Amino acid sequence: MSKNYLDLLAYFGIGGAHPGGYSLTQSLLENVNIQRTESVLDIGCGTGQTAAFLAEQFDCHVTAVDNHPIMVEKAIERFKENGFSVKVIEGDAQNLNFPDSTFDFIISESVIVFTDISKTLNELSRVLKSGGSMIMIEMTAEQNLSEELRGKVCNLYGINDILNEEEWISKLQQVGFTQIEIINTPSGLIPSEINDINQSKNINMELFELWEKHNQFTLQNSHLIGYRVFKCYLK
């Protein structure tokens, strides 16, 4: 069975695999004002590293959602070990089982590009309260890509498309985000420092090979494929 990039992250149990890593997450959340009474959604929570930070830092109501059962299992394990009260749900970002206007704040770290982008952004806008905000970190094309390179990116990561900064902003505006800020960060898609791993037993060799392909690709194409951090507000 062919393994994909999200399987790689799940079986290796990598926390902070997104561009910028966990250190970027911490620096971004230092500047966010979240009250204890507020509800926060970590969409595509992975092994729960960010959700655990949110629960510890803000003592707020955190809901963590991921569609990979192994990720969900490892997130639950993390929260139990650390005594964090986080609601964990195995769910689809493109079809969230929450009422409209449920959350005050949403964080999404290299998640939306792996889905139908328009569907997921529409859902995140729907479940965010009026006046709420969202931070998202997403892979971004730094210039016009050749069809060959675009195909390589999509094939390697199992995605349908890679957007540039303007295309991301346009899609965010289409679903109702009226104020969109680009948070200044290094934009290169370089391998993140990995220091949080909860590895599964008996990992398929395909996943080790895929990890090597990912590292080679990012080193060779960091001038073409980068990332952006968007902070988005809903009226």
Rank of each mutant, 00 (worst) to 15 (best):
T115N: 15
F114K: 01
D92A: 06
R126P: 03
L128V: 09
L121K: 04
G131D: 07
N122C: 06
D116K: 13
M139G: 11
S118L: 11
K119D: 10
F103H: 00
G91V: 03
I106T: 03
E138V: 09
S108E: 05
S110C: 15
S130D: 10
E142H: 13
S85A: 15
I137T: 15
S110A: 15
Q94T: 12
I107L: 10
L145Q: 07
R126G: 07
K129A: 09
F98W: 03
D116R: 15
F98Q: 05
N122P: 00
S133V: 04
I137W: 13
S146E: 13
M134H: 00
N95E: 13
V88N: 01
V111W: 09
E109F: 06
V88K: 01
I89N: 04
L96N: 00
D116A: 14
Q143P: 02
S118M: 12
L96P: 01
E109V: 12
S146H: 13
D100V: 01
F98L: 04
V88R: 02
S101V: 00
I135T: 07
D92C: 06
F84P: 02
P99G: 05
I137C: 13
L145P: 07
L128Y: 08
L145V: 11
S125Q: 08
E138W: 08
I106E: 01
Q94C: 05
T120I: 08
S125R: 06
G131I: 03
V113H: 07
R126I: 05
L128P: 05
T140Y: 09
D92S: 09
E123V: 04
D100P: 01
L128H: 05
K129V: 05
K87R: 13
A93Q: 07
A93L: 09
I107A: 03
M134N: 01
D116W: 10
D116I: 12
L121C: 05
A141D: 06
I107C: 13
F105W: 10
G132T: 04
D104V: 07
V113Y: 08
D100G: 00
Q94S: 14
L128W: 06
F84E: 14
Q143Y: 11
S146I: 12
F105D: 03
